[in-house]
Amino acid sequence: MAYSQKVLDHYNNPRNVGSLDKSDPNVGTGMVGAPECGDVMKLQVKVNPQTGIIEDAKFKTFGCGSAIASSSLATEMLKGKTVEEALAIKNTELVNELSLPPVKVHCSILAEDAIKAAIADYKRKQAAREAVVAQAQ
């Protein structure tokens, strides 16, 4: 089975590969994996706390071409979105954009899980910080 042009493009020229500072309170990190294929995916977002807009997104994925393409595309889609808009991203958007075949749909689900995990981590950090601020007052 051949990969679609778009998958190949993202696979050969992945966007936004790298990492952001995990300890930055404005950075949320999502780490997910799929036991059946051994894939592991790390996706990070950097949010402007004033506007709630995602200013940067990075990923690093070890896995098949579709998993790499799904997470690469996800980081592209994330930039400029608000946190709430990002949570609304569905794996079906990735499937359609990349023309993923049914056997590779789970790669897009993994990417959606990674987005949700990264944002959950960001929210957790923000809540923790607010709690500290509230305590200090």
């Binding site: 780490m31 997910v32 994996g33 799929a34 036991p35 592991v40 790390k42 070890f62």
Partner: peptide
């Protein structure tokens, strides 16, 4: 994906 504990994922990564 929930069957893989997060600390294991870190190590795998």
């Amino acid at each position: 994906t929930k069957d893989v504990p997060p600390e294991l994922l870190e190590e795998v990564f």
